[in-house]
Design a protein around this nucleic acid. Structure first.
Lengths: 325, 325
DNA sequence: TGCAAATATACAAACGTTTGCACAAATCGC
DNA sequence: GCGATTTGTGCAAACGTTTGTATATTTGCA
């Protein structure tokens, strides 16, 4: 590979001038610059960013840490972040934690060792606090998104979980459903806590007493959603606000099995606008999370050096599963 | 950040000894090594991999270039590749081309500038040959996957498109469908050419003449699938092998609109086992592509320095849309 | 005891850039 | 036409590692 030293030698000047010329410094003569640029192209020069970064003590890499790359939500976040960062001249180094705390620690250390310009992080479900992040990352800029620890300094991008769940539950109430349960997620995760709070708030505003016996916690996947769905039927529910999409799918399985018609006898609204929700039968009303926009927002927060918390609204998409006639 | 020089100073030895101690060289005394390791931990030392890579002229980063990160197929490839590479001590730098040739060129240049250890590439639809890759990447190891140019040297990981399409079409024939059309993709892409070939082969083996008038090219998204579906009905087809999943969905839209029952009156098999295909009604029979395994295979090919072409079998998953009673 | 071999560490250069400082040449004001 | 300023380039150090070679120390053996 050709280096600036090669170019300098070919032109009978020094590497420093070549460096300045290519960097567009005003301290080099127009004529020299042109000569350098011509020669560089001729010799197929491409800057070694590793050397450049080392010398400048800076990096053009931003690390992104997510639980799982191939989860629809996160791959969309990554896509959004990449598009913004790439525009700004950054590249993204991606690590997945597979929800393991240990892997999260390892990923953060790796990124620190690369001296990345910043880190965009969504925590593993196993992580219980942000202490390890602070310790490992030091003063490397950090933006947390989706799964966030409030006590950890720096920008945070979160969905408006409480408001979203509120809107979803309110919609079920207004549609005329009377006994509305919820498939709650893990209470160790802020997002699920907030969704439960929004659900509760909507009930209380409508004068409906909150009934903990129809709150089904730790239901996240299709199977647990199915089981919770059966319990909800048993408990006399006629609607569910579900804090996820796959658990809602499981609940629908249960309803179909019991011959309960959706939405006439039972209404359901899920969360996270996964692709399939619009395509199943009945199509699932859902709270859209805008993961692509969250990724973009996280990237922008990094670029702007923001330390604010940005709340991305969630959008209620009403489909067949809650459209009572 | 502490450096090996700091550690050396603290111990009254030289950076070279520290470096060797941390690298586990046999040329440093056991006692010294322990002292160095202790001090390193004490001072919170983490190796600067940028400097290390510069000096060693090596890199522990592998670049992955895909059309779109958030496409289910590619995010699964990335997930598979990341899991294998991470195990082997590599990290992945991800670039997306958004199907643009220009972006692909830019991405490859970027990766070259980072002096990555290797590149895993799936081409943008706009790319018409691999010439630019050879020119930009030089001797950087390259593994192509899914979208591949055969004339480009190096390992290739591809789905067994021809065999898969053959199996899918054969299945439709055996189910008793008589006039089987196909939603073909873009003939500029090898994968779609092969799928068409497999479709044709199955017909010919069964003694059914190949009829170009029921081959619907350039149908890839739901809308074009819908339009092609209408044409297929018009043309008297009673089945379709579709080279994608979303176009198959569009064809189903058309069939439903016309009140044609699936699978009794019309059979359909799609390609690429997208999540939704199992969840829609009727569930869509599909050719599964194993993207996670393809990503793993690509990563392994890189690690092993293979230059072979590896063919990942495609799996026919028979669901409701082709299960004729 | 003395010399060769083995062991452990130091020295210094190198990877390819960038950048503060020095210096030479050109330009300007008066 | 002289000193002051501007302009353009060179020199050399630095970023934090790694590594070939040299040197110092220890060990082994006769």
């Amino acid at each position: 590979m050709t280096t600036i030293t090669d170019i300098a030698a070919a032109l009978g000047i020094t590497p420093s001038t070549v460096s300045r010329a290519l960097a567009g410094s005003s301290r080099v003569k127009e004529e020299t610059r042109r000569a350098v640029e011509k020669k560089a192209k001729e010799m197929g020069y491409e800057r070694n960013v590793v050397a450049s970064n080392l010398r400048k003590g800076a990096s053009s890499i931003v690390g992104i840490v997510v639980p799982r790359i191939h989860r629809e939500f996160f791959s969309n976040c990554i896509g959004g972040a990449e598009s913004v960062l790439n525009q700004a001249g950054y590249n993204v180094l991606i690590c997945q934690t597979i929800e393991s705390f240990e892997s999260e620690v390892k990923a953060l250390k790796t990124l620190k060792n690369y001296r990345v310009a910043g880190v965009l992080l969504s925590h593993a479900i196993e992580s219980r606090s942000g202490d390890h992040v602070k310790e490992i990352l030091g003063n490397t800029p950090l933006v947390q998104f989706d799964r966030v620890f409030p006590d950890l300094a720096g920008a945070k991008i979160v969905g408006d979980n409480c408001d979203g769940a509120f809107k979803a539950t309110l919609h079920l109430i207004q549609a005329g459903y009377k006994r509305i349960g919820t498939l709650a997620g893990y209470m160790s995760s802020q997002a699920y806590v907030e969704r439960l709070a929004g659900y509760r708030l909507a009930l209380e505003r409508a004068g409906i007493p909150f009934d903990p016996s129809i709150v089904y916690e730790n239901t996240i996947v299709r199977e647990t959603g199915y089981e919770a769905g059966l319990k909800a039927i048993e408990a006399g529910c006629d609607a569910l606000y579900s804090s996820g999409a796959f658990n809602a799918l499981g609940a629908i399985d249960a309803l179909k099995e019991k011959g309960i018609s959706i939405p006439d006898q039972f209404g359901i609204v899920g969360t996270a606008n996964e692709g399939f929700t619009a395509l199943i039968n009945p199509s699932l009303s859902t709270l859209g999370q805008h993961p692509f926009e969250m990724g973009q927002a996280a990237a922008r927060a990094f670029l702007e050096g923001s330390t604010d918390t940005e709340i991305i609204p969630m959008e209620l998409i009403i489909r067949e599963s809650s459209r009572k006639h």
